[in-house]
Design a protein around this nucleic acid. Structure first.
Lengths: 138, 138
DNA sequence: CTGCGTGCAAAATGTTTGCAATGTG
DNA sequence: CACATTGCAAACATTTTGCACGCAG
């Protein structure tokens, strides 16, 4: 699922956003990072290339991408927002040792028998998060 | 799964906490509320009986209960911590309309075929959260 | 030139902590 | 009576917002 340097610009444009170096760097880091980084981590990463980049820019960019449906927000374990470029159906694995969050393909362990309705409720979707030790920490 | 007024005192003692009226009220509200309340909601609730009760007391109590394993912290949708007295195995249903969070029994829709290991990872547990409309909002 | 985007700083939340006064065991 | 717990206020952490300047179309 490689997103080329071109595609980043297209993704931004597709969200109605102008392509700026800072925004490009935000998306590039989201793509490269396999840890579902927080805003703070993203800011630190893009500050290596753009030392003057600010929280406001990072949050503005992320919120715009989320609003446009290109990025998903994740809340895992603590109240810190984490961001996920992968908008397709998938699950998550949280390593309780190092804290990294990995994507799991939707069918990694078979389809889940989740009903469409349940006790009078309408079920539209579900989020599954696995916990344990990642391959590195195991 | 009714927890009587007696049991609240026992639960607090079992966590090594002295039984105070404020703490009793916190647990009582956790038990009665079916919405997995946030600290702010709990504070508002116990302020009806104890107008001078403070955030510090609510947070101290909740954190002590979480540390003792009697309460679970939930992070759903936004960065706000929500608290769940039910520490047994169960899932959650989030109503996207009214925001309420309901407990679902572990076997509500069959056991999930989640593997013990997955691509080099060790899987210890999993959290499943269903989204949709609750019976009231449907 | 028009206006979106940036960066800085301040504000708005949500949560934690320090401490004197108080209540519990 | 000893000391855990309370309430208040201040500190913290994260996210949002206001605004002047700057760059792109």
């Amino acid at each position: 699922m490689g997103v080329g340097p071109h595609d980043i610009a297209r993704l931004l444009e597709g969200c109605g956003l102008r392509v700026t170096p800072q925004r490009h760097a935000v998306v590039e880091h989201l793509e490269r990072a396999r840890t579902h980084p927080s805003a703070e981590e993203i800011l630190a990463a893009i500050n290596r290339r753009f030392p003057r980049a600010s929280k406001a820019t990072v949050y503005n960019t992320l919120n715009a991408l989320v609003a446009a449906g290109a990025v998903r927000t994740l809340y895992v374990e603590d109240g810190v927002a984490r961001y996920d470029l992968n908008v397709g159906r998938h699950h998550h694995f949280v390593c309780d040792e190092c804290g990294r969050i990995e994507d799991l393909p939707f069918d990694a362990f078979g389809r889940l028998p989740v009903a469409r309705s349940l006790g009078g409720r309408r079920v539209d979707r579900f989020d599954l998060t696995l916990h344990g030790r990642c391959a590195d920490c195991r």
